[in-house]
Design a protein around this nucleic acid. Structure first.
Lengths: 218, 218
DNA sequence: AGTCAAGTTTTTGTATACAAGGTCTACGCA
DNA sequence: TGCGTAGACCTTGTATACAAAAACTTGACT
């Protein structure tokens, strides 16, 4: 592998962790990674620190850094917070969204629809992601946008799971419609509530999630 | 200064930045800090990286790291998000709070009251902080608790300002009462809304905030 | 055989050396 | 005098050397 910058290394490792290349509690060996990326330990340590800061790994003093995959409970907690952040973004967006963005949102949702009919999961995920990203941006709050994006990214590998969990994509689509309506109506409360419901994982789905996680782990 | 660990150094620098020891855009000189803390540049660089990750400073490649004090807009954005996180915590807490915690919350609020009557600002701030911390914890979501605490900490130096901004502490106290009532009633919606109002900086206060910031900067 | 301890090896953490790019000064030239 | 540029000087970024702590191995003793 060619010599590369620490940020790139961190991105790379982050990607690997998020994609599940490493198992939970795997140790990230500094010299091994140094060889792997053809750099010295110094930039590797920098990258590892970034990962620990992001919560993707944990550094135990004098023992090393270990990847930290979230368990079922932590995952639920993260989804709960995600739901609130998205709800907040939708609340603000209902008051602040531009006509252009609203149109873009409609287009994106139609793209979702088409991808769904074509059974093109990949395209659906991309469009879905853009749908949410537009709402973050239209919250008119770049700090919120950044935080939401960060958490969204962190949860990305589990989104697929969440969708399967929710049952059918159909329902997700109709929720999008409700969000869209609330936004174009300029109704912050409804926008927030509908969005929260859209993201949240509640009640009986909890057990389903745990079961799915266990299956995935084996 | 005695030789100390990078985390301690980072905490120290963080404290200094938050307390306003450094001005915006000040460069954090590696060798200077190394001398100051009697360590080599390596642990200093680690500490600086932590600061940049936390958003308290920015690293410009090949130029150094510079402290980033939030401007008025960013500050408002952060308060907006803080309001939403607190509202979310209150929403969950209304459903999950324990009797013991509820009692503790009442006690803490009374402590606020007493401190207010004694005009003991310091004690008031401590009690106020505990009040909010209890709500975070009682959200029953440790991820949310951690995120809220993180942002709370970041906004700490501006809270004083926010209170002055809101007018009188009296109002803050009566808002606490409303929150308390909603929590003991187990009413999530009200708890969330009241809390959001409690934290939020809206409308005309905006200009006031900017003016106050400018004064503080001179 | 099992356990404990001393020594060896491995690994992290810190210091220092070196390389590469950026800044600043001083001098030449219009 | 003002501007541009060459070169010295700093500063950051990376590699390597060294120190200290943990893990592992081996062997002695019960």
């Amino acid at each position: 592998m060619s010599k590369t910058h620490p940020n790139v290394i961190a991105d790379h490792l982050e990607e690997m962790i998020l994609e599940g290349t490493f198992a939970d509690n795997d140790r990230l060996d500094e010299v091994q990674l140094a060889k792997r990326f053809s750099v010295s330990r110094t930039p590797i340590r920098e990258a590892l620190q970034r990962l620990t800061q992001a919560g993707l790994a944990e550094r135990i003093p004098r023992r090393g850094v270990f990847v930290r995959q979230p368990g079922a409970i932590e995952l639920l907690e993260m989804f709960e917070v995600m739901a609130e952040l998205e709800a907040a973004a939708a609340r603000f967006a209902a008051q602040r969204i531009s006509d252009a963005a609203l149109k873009e949102l409609v287009d994106t949702n139609e793209e979702c629809e088409r991808a769904l009919q074509d059974k093109d999961a990949d395209r659906y995920y991309r469009a879905n992601e853009r749908f949410h990203q537009i709402i973050y941006a239209q919250s008119g709050n770049s700090f919120l946008e950044a935080e939401a994006t960060r958490l969204h990214r962190r949860l990305k590998p589990f989104r697929r799971l969440q969708l399967r969990l929710r049952g059918r994509l159909r329902q997700s689509m109709s929720e999008h419609e409700s969000i869209l309506k609330a936004l174009s109506d300029g109704d912050p409360e409804t926008a927030a509530n509908v969005t929260r419901q859209h993201i949240a994982v509640q009640g009986d789905k909890f057990h389903h999630l745990i079961a799915t996680l266990k299956t995935a782990a084996e």
